[in-house]
Structures are given as structure tokens and as C-alpha cells.
Simulated scan of single mutants.
Amino acid sequence: MIRPTKPEDAVALIDVANTIGFQPHEIEALGKMLADYFGGNTDSDPFWITDFDDKDGPVGVAYCEPERMTEQTWNLQLIAIRPDHQGQGRGGKLLHYVEETLKARGGRMLLVETLASFERTRKFYAKCGYEEEARIRDFYTAGADKIVFRKVLNAA
């Protein structure tokens, strides 16, 4: 079941991030983002979505926020499925839910960023209808390029 994230999901969602390899400083930032979101301490209109399994609780998460100074362009900052629940189509369903949520809000375009070295991730976005829009060389560190994917949601 995919649904809006609830405050009681936070610990499990941080665990999801931990199981997919988030670094300690990234886990700390994620915890702060969730706390700010549920505390109403954000200056934008982000949203969190949880993939909830009846047996295992929260097993996936997506976080999306609007791009400042744009007309309904959004950025998918995080999408993750716990490794023991991957390969079941959950990521595609979660991404589709995000897209439908954005369309209902009038969202025009969704951007997604990933590392060039994440071939599986890049294939996932291509399979979901995203096109590679940009590459920023050496963005994360020397030799670690950032790839930006784009999908038009509501062509106006």
C-alpha cells in the first residue's frame, strides 16, 4: 500500500535509507528533513510518500519538493525500496504514485538526479519514461558525474 508518510514512519524510513547505503551524514540530514517536515518547518511544499507492507511496515520512501523559481517543476530528491523488497515492481509503483500526485497538484515536470555510475538506477528511470537531460562532470567528487533525468507530466 502506498500512502502519504506519517510521523510514526520516520524511524523505519531512516532504516530503509541505511540499508541502501546512505552515509552517516546523509542519515542525519534525512532525519532532520523528516523532523522539519512533520514540524511544519519548511519553506516549500515538499511531500513524502511511504510504501507500506502489511507484514513488514514501511519498506519504501519517496521525497519530492518543488524547484524554486520555476513554474511547477519538481525534483524527486529520494526514492528507495528496502533491498529485501526490491525486484517486485515496488519502485515503479512508488514513482508512478509520485507522478500522479504531482499531476493532481498541477505539476508540469519532474527531475531526478543520480550518479552516472548507478547503471541500474539509470536503466530504471529510462524504463519509467525519463530522458537523460544533463550530465555534470565531477559533480559529487572527481570522476563522479551527476546525471539529471526529466519527465514531462502535464504538457501545457
Rank of each mutant, 00 (worst) to 15 (best):
T5D: 01
E8Q: 15
E8C: 14
A12S: 15
D15R: 14
D15I: 04
V16M: 10
N18I: 02
F22S: 11
F22I: 11
Q23Y: 11
I27R: 14
A29N: 03
K32L: 05
A35K: 13
Y37A: 10
G39L: 03
N41A: 13
T42A: 03
P46E: 00
F52M: 01
D53C: 06
D53P: 05
V59C: 12
G60Q: 09
C64V: 15
C64K: 11
E65I: 14
P66D: 01
M69L: 14
E71D: 05
E71P: 00
T73D: 03
Q77H: 05
Q77T: 08
Q77K: 10
L78H: 09
A80Q: 09
I81V: 14
I81M: 12
P83D: 03
Q86A: 10
Q86V: 04
G91F: 06
G91P: 08
G91T: 09
G92K: 03
K93Q: 13
K93S: 10
L94N: 01
L95H: 10
E99Y: 01
L102Q: 03
K103T: 06
R105S: 04
R105G: 07
G106M: 06
M109L: 15
V112R: 04
L115M: 12
L115R: 14
A116C: 03
R122C: 11
R122V: 04
Y125P: 09
Y125S: 04
A126F: 03
A126W: 01
K127F: 06
E133F: 15
E133S: 15
A134T: 10
R135Y: 00
F139I: 05
T141Y: 02
A142Q: 10
G143E: 00
I147R: 08
R150C: 12
L153Q: 02
L153G: 12
A155Q: 11
A155M: 08
A156M: 00
